[in-house]
Amino acid sequence: MLVLEQRPVLTEGGAGIRLAPEDFRLLDRLGVGDAVRERSLTIDEFRTMDGTTEEPVGTVALPVRHGDGRAAHATAHRLDVHEPLLEACWELDAVRLCPDSRVVGYAEHGESVVAALADGRSVTGDALVLTGAARSVVRGDARWADDAPPELLAVYHTVIPMELMADHWQDGPATSWVGPGWHLSHYPLPDSRYLSLSVTRRRHTGAELDGARVDLENVLAAFPEIGYAARNVLTTGSHWRAWTLPGRTAGARRRARGRVALVAEGAEPPRPLEASGLQHALADALGLATSWDASEDDTLRRLADYDTRRPDRAPDAARASCGA
């Protein structure tokens, strides 16, 4: 298996991520659950606020342990999840990791598919699996046109030193401020030295954002209706990055066509309050592996099985409320 990574180095930034019981269950199946638990911060409460009126909506107590005594809800740096997965890949002889290899297009030829790379190279294989980061490869492609999402989300993210936050947020729970067409989420990260802060605008109509750096002024301009208290939290952030993600569609989307498959956000966008897409990526990867094992030596049948096999994503009310 050849893994084509568009970035020049195989690493992750310091952005934060929320981990729910289903995430840990999937990580356990991949053999890295305990490694991620050791790096994460257990959280026991989630709070929802009205982002316009500043009134509390509700507080949910989160179970901190599963029946087996392991962490149930937690936060982590993305790097804390990425590194255990990356180390597991390095240990597999069948996996070859290729950084600085951005896929910009593809073409199917008989029993193979050719991926075109940004630097002019091409790679030929039996199948091409596109992750959420490569969703632009099929966007605008007539073969996938009926799956085009009706809207885009704009997600702005930063990490803030905890000493810059007001005292009542320094030991506070995971919190989400919800407004019409937007939401803001923040939570402490492991060692409680930093707060992860993200704010999402639904129905984004501007330029596509791909991890671009943005100024605070641009972030504030995207949320003119935000309430005073939520705005105060927002203005604490400074080093912002922004992404666009596809919005959710009304029905099930095609996840494979011919020798090409989509996983993570490329296959099914996350819920409005769940911008990280971690659970989607893990569930889709395991689902694809199950389909691959189910059909021997027939790539088209394997991908067709994956297309019809809906991901096993257990409902999680706390996660649906909390966001990423």
Rank of each mutant, 00 (worst) to 15 (best):
G277K: 01
V113D: 00
P63W: 03
W90C: 11
P150Q: 12
S198T: 14
V36P: 05
H73T: 07
A76I: 07
E45T: 08
Y187V: 07
T48C: 14
L41F: 09
G323N: 03
R254D: 04
L86C: 14
R253T: 05
L4Q: 04
W169I: 10
L164F: 11
R65Y: 07
G247C: 00
A207W: 12
R254G: 05
D126L: 12
D316S: 09
I160G: 05
W177N: 06
R139M: 13
R139H: 13
Q170I: 08
R202F: 14
E151D: 14
L26Y: 04
H109C: 15
A134K: 01
V129N: 01
P270D: 07
A230F: 03
D93E: 14
I17K: 02
P315C: 02
P311R: 01
G247A: 00
A320S: 14
V36A: 10
R301M: 12
L19T: 00
E54K: 09
T290Y: 05
R143H: 06
G58C: 06
S291D: 01
S238M: 13
E108M: 08
E5M: 03
E217N: 15
G132D: 01
R302M: 12
R18T: 09
V137E: 02
H280C: 12
P21H: 04
P21K: 02
V9S: 12
S295N: 12
R37W: 02
H239D: 14
L216F: 11
A289E: 06
V113G: 02
E151T: 10
R18Q: 13
R257E: 09
A145W: 10
S276K: 10
R39L: 04
A294N: 08
V104M: 06
L92M: 11
E296D: 06
P188Y: 06
G105F: 03
L220T: 14
L216I: 11
H157Q: 15
